[in-house]
């Protein structure tokens, strides 16, 4: 892919398609100027807040909804709307309500990421082995022990896919939100580079966003998956 990119870049002016080397150079100069660290820090805390809200509330609503059908019937359509409406529509509303700043990208990323976790939690609760829960009840396990010994471990495999989807959505929608509704952060820097026709810099920020996604997978989801795998596969 890198080779194809290099070859193609040779035929086009760098304003349309800069070569990989130019992108690396742009990235280096962003790092050297301190711009990279500054914008990255802003984006990371925004995304973390959005992901914590989306993931936390997704689980916190999904567990009770999995136990009480009426609650699931109430929440499911809400989540479907949150997930189904194009993120850009939410962003338009958020811009009107919150103006530009941190709030719009955070709220939109949170709202778009939450349904993935909610649905995964709900499915996990549905798939829960009733016999196992009965056994635990027979042996006198109470709420907190029940959660720790039975519910959370049983939910982990389902949560993994939900959280992974949610993390990707948070990065995508969060950065998009910054692009359109903020004057700071990776997305906003990308927008600025675009207006200046600094295509190499735009691509450098794309690389940064990709890095964020990989970081989320590596730091958050891999360790969780490894823990879950211990009892499932030969280990």
């Amino acid at each position: 892919m890198m080779a194809a990119w290099s070859v193609l870049a040779a035929f086009y002016p760098s304003i349309l398609l800069p070569s990989p080397l130019e992108v690396v150079a742009a990235l280096c100069s962003l790092a050297a100027s301190g711009e990279l660290a500054r914008e990255l820090a802003t984006t990371v805390w925004r995304l973390l807040v959005a992901f914590a809200l989306g993931g936390g509330l997704g689980i916190a609503l999904g567990v009770p909804a999995g136990r009480a059908r009426p609650l699931a019937a109430l929440l499911r359509p809400i989540m479907a709307v949150l997930a189904g409406v194009p993120p850009i529509s939410w962003l338009a509303l958020a811009l009107i309500w919150f103006g530009t700043g941190s709030l719009a990208p955070i709220v939109v990323a949170w709202l778009v990421a939450m349904p993935a976790v909610f649905v995964a939690t709900l499915e996990g609760m549905r798939a829960l082995d009733r016999d196992l829960a009965d056994m635990a009840r027979a042996f006198g396990l109470q709420r907190l022990d029940m959660l720790r010994e039975v519910y959370l471990p049983a939910l982990t495999p389902h949560l993994l896919s939900g959280l992974s989807t949610a993390a990707a959505l948070t990065v995508r929608v969060g950065v998009m939100g910054e692009f359109l509704a903020s004057s700071t952060g990776v997305g906003s820097a990308m927008a600025l580079a675009r207006t200046r026709l600094e295509t190499a810099e735009v691509l450098a920020w794309v690389v940064v966003a990709l890095g964020l996604l990989m970081l989320a997978e590596g730091l958050l989801l891999r360790p969780l998956a490894r823990r879950a795998a211990v009892w499932r596969k030969e280990g």
């Binding site: 196992l132 056994m135 042996f139 396990l141 109470q142 010994e149 471990p153 982990t156 009892w231």
Partner: peptide, 26 residues
């Protein structure tokens, strides 16, 4: 009670030791 079911009904994510101690933990 000490209840032994038709199937073992062990917690798959807990070791043998932890499974035997489950009731004591509760």
């Amino acid at each position: 009670p000490g209840y032994v079911f038709q199937e073992p009904r062990l917690l798959p994510w807990r070791t043998v030791e932890e499974n035997v101690g489950l009731g004591l933990k509760a």
